[in-house]
Amino acid sequence: MIYLLPLLSVFIGYLIALFLKPSSSLGFKLLLSFSGAYLLSITVFELLPTVYEGGSEHIGIFIMLGLLLQILLEFFSKGVEHGHIHHDENTGKFPLVLLISLCIHSLLEGFPLHNTEHLLHGVIIHKIPVAAILSTFLIHSKISKFQVFLFLSIFASMTPLGSWIQSNFTQLDQYNYFISAAVIGIFLHVSTTILFEASKNHTFNASKLAVIIFGILLAYLL
C-alpha cells in the first residue's frame, strides 16, 4: 500500500482536474484545509516524538534545515505543494524546474512512511489536492498530452521511490532519524502554509474551521 496509494492519489487528483474546477470549488478548498490540518497533526502527534526518541541533539537542526529546504523548493515550484501554482500556462516549454522541485519534495516524503500508517494517510490526503492543482495547470498549458503524462508519471513515482530506497538500502538506517527530521520540517512548512492561507484576511468561515478541527481530532483519535 505504501507504493500503490501515492500513485493512486495522483490519478485521483488528475480525475478531479478533468471533471471539476479545483481552484473555484468550495469542496476542494475544504479538502485542502482538511489535508493541511491532518498532515500537521500526524506530524506533531506521531512523527515528531519518534525522531526525538533517537536521542540526537541535532534533530532540531535537521527539522529547520527541512523547513528551509521546502522554502527553497517553493521558490521554483511557486507553491503547488500547498495548493497554489503561479506558473505561466501560455508557455509551451516543459516545466522541468517545477518537476525537479516537486520530485525532491515527493522523494523525501516517502522515506518516513514506514513509521506509521497514519502518516501514509496524511501524505495521500495531502497529495490529492496537490495533484489536482498540478494537473489543472498541465492540462491548460501548451505542452503535449504525452508530456503531461510523463510529468505526472514521474511525479507520482517519487514518493514510492523514496519508500523503496529507505526499505532496500540498509546503509541509510543510521540516517533515518535525520531524514525524518528534515521531512518534519517540510511537512510543518507545507501544512501551516495551507492553514494560514485558509484563513484569508485572518478570518475563518465556519466550514473551514469545522474541517480543520475535524482533521486534528481524527489524527489524534486514530
Rank of each mutant, 00 (worst) to 15 (best):
I194Q: 03
I154T: 01
T192L: 11
S153A: 10
A156W: 00
G185E: 07
F137H: 09
W164K: 09
F151H: 02
K200H: 11
K200I: 07
F214W: 13
S153D: 04
L138R: 02
I213M: 06
F137S: 10
K145S: 13
I143V: 00
S135V: 02
S157L: 10
Q147E: 08
I184H: 15
Q166R: 03
S153T: 04
S163N: 08
I184N: 15
Q147S: 05
H140P: 05
T170F: 12
Q174W: 05
F204P: 08
I212K: 02
A206P: 14
F196H: 12
F196N: 14
F151M: 01
L195P: 15
S157K: 01
S163G: 06
I179A: 11
S207T: 10
F146T: 01
P160M: 04
A182M: 13
S207F: 11
I212P: 12
T170I: 11
H140S: 12
L188V: 03
H140Y: 09
I213K: 07
S163L: 04
M158P: 10
F204C: 05
S157M: 06
Y177T: 00
L161D: 05
F149Q: 07
F187G: 06
V211C: 05
I139K: 14
P160N: 03
M158H: 02
I139S: 15
A198P: 10
L134K: 01
N201L: 10
A182L: 08
I154W: 01
T192W: 11
I194S: 03
F146H: 11
S207R: 10
S180W: 14
Q147G: 03
Q171N: 15
K200Y: 14
N205H: 12
W164R: 09
A181D: 09
E197P: 03
H140W: 07
W164D: 12
T192E: 13
Q147L: 06
N205T: 02
H189D: 06
K142G: 01
M158F: 00
I184Q: 15
T159A: 03
S163K: 06
Y175F: 13
E197V: 03
P160W: 02
F196I: 08
